[in-house]
């Protein structure tokens, strides 16, 4: 499978105190570990993103543990209140230890 490709949508600028909707999406098969290979009958090993973390200026502000029932290409959205300018860093951690990340800038003025 191609390397997972993350996408995030964060407004570039915001007024102080404004509520922002942050949307994230990543391509991933999210292989549940429940399926069998149709030809060999063997179980396909689980390979999912098990952790999603959003940090703002280096500080974790939101995280989620994901489990095998999460569908492929997981979409996640949440809200945040803008208080200061800074950098969002989004990271997705795979079962095999790979980490996919993406950053976004926010200017509060």
């Amino acid at each position: 499978m191609a390397k997972p490709k993350p996408r995030v949508k964060v407004p570039k600028t915001a007024a102080k105190g404004e509520v922002l909707e942050i949307k994230t999406l990543i391509t991933h098969k999210m292989e549940s570990g429940q399926r069998k290979d149709k030809k060999t009958g063997e179980k396909i090993p689980q390979k999912i993103i098990n952790k999603f973390v959003c940090a703002f200026n280096g500080k974790e502000v939101f995280s989620a543990d994901w489990h095998p029932a999460i569908s492929a290409n997981p979409f996640m959205s949440f809200y945040a209140v803008a208080t200061e300018s800074g950098t969002f860093e989004f990271t997705w951690t795979d079962d095999d230890g790979s980490v996919y990340s993406k950053t976004a800038q926010l200017t509060v003025g």
Binding site: E21, F56, K59, V61, F62, S71, A72, F78, A80
Partner: peptide, 20 residues
């Protein structure tokens, strides 16, 4: 694809709420 329901989490600087 599925929407993921979240519990409200509060953190310094930012507040995170349920999406819907």
């Amino acid at each position: 694809m599925r929407r993921i329901a979240l519990a409200a989490v509060a953190a310094s600087g930012l507040t995170v709420m349920l999406a819907g």
